[in-house]
């Protein structure tokens, strides 16, 4: 119910801004202020703290942008310097305990991080198959994927 209300409100803000209605920045300020008030209220009670969660999600967004830029610089260097130094493999990576939506988010993040590209998901949803450009040492490549996975679990999936 609450989720549907939030969806309705997001659509309303989208419509207002798309149609060039000049009132929408005010409505946005109202929404943000309301969110801050609710977060402050959460601080003094036993309720789950939405403010801190939103902050953690924001921090993950910044981290994600940083690794996106780094992966672009890496592949740009590979394209622009003569010769190839890749040591590609297709690895399997376990995602047993994630549901479908979380697997999708993790797969998208893996594709946009340096040197990795998701090729396939097994039919039962237990394994991701990842094409790694630099995987001379298999366990090291898996450890890199694990770092991203754990960060995503800690900061986004813990809602």
């Amino acid at each position: 119910m609450i989720r549907r209300l939030g969806f309705d409100m997001a659509l309303a803000v989208l419509y207002l801004s798309w149609s060039g209605n000049h009132a929408w920045p005010g409505i946005l300020v109202g929404l943000v202020l309301g969110f801050i008030v609710v977060s402050v209220y959460d601080l003094g009670t036993q309720h789950p703290n939405h403010g801190r969660r939103a902050l953690r999600m924001l921090r993950f967004g910044v981290y994600f942008l940083a690794i996106l830029v780094r992966s672009n610089l890496q592949i740009a260097r590979e394209i622009m310097t003569p010769g190839f130094s890749q040591t590609p493999r297709i690895l399997r990576y376990p995602v047993d305990d994630l549901d479908d939506f979380q697997t999708t988010v993790l797969a998208n993040c893996i594709t946009l991080t340096p040197g990795t590209l998701v090729v396939d998901v097994s039919d039962d949803g237990r394994w991701l198959y990842v094409h790694c450009m630099y995987a001379l040492d298999r366990s090291e490549a898996i450890a890199g994927l694990r770092r991203l996975d754990e960060r995503l679990r800690r900061e986004v999936f813990s809602w």
């Binding site: 190839f84 890749q86 040591t87 590609p88 493999r89 297709i90 690895l91 399997r92 090729v119 396939d120 198959y129 995987a135 001379l136 298999r138």
Partner: peptide, 9 residues
């Protein structure tokens, strides 16, 4: 590519 090391898929 012929330099691919392994294909677990």
């Amino acid at each position: 590519w012929d330099r691919t090391l392994s294909d677990e898929l």
